[in-house]
Amino acid sequence: MGPNLLANYGEAVSAILFCIGFTNLLLQTNLIKKIIGLNVMDSAIYLFLAEKGYIAGRVAPIVVNGVTSTEAYINPIPSGLVLTGIVVSVSVTALMLSLTIRLYTRYHTLDLDEISAQLKKEGK
């Protein structure tokens, strides 16, 4: 376990970051902090993917100087997945932020629990 963990420290870091983001998204009551947690969580997964796609000593798969051997380049698919994932996470972040603005203009607070309490008081 020890040597493996050291060799794959990038993956270990990404797993820890994922847990930090996940806990923030789940437990914070402040909406903005929740959204930050969401982004940390998603970025951790992209770090994991990038780490998996990288092969030491090779370069990004863009053909320069006519080198076409597959041995010279890293695996491009994880990078493609990261790009797709970024698009998805940007759109959900935008949606979450717009919802947060709606709630803030209505209830003048970012605290989700307080909003729930106010809603109960309204009784509708």
């Binding site: 959900v92 919802l99 209505r106 989700l112 909003i115 809603l119």
Partner: peptide, 13 residues
């Protein structure tokens, strides 16, 4: 309505 926006936020989370 306030309720639906709050529900949407909780659903999204």
């Amino acid at each position: 309505v306030g309720r639906t926006i709050e529900a949407a936020v909780r659903y999204m989370i």
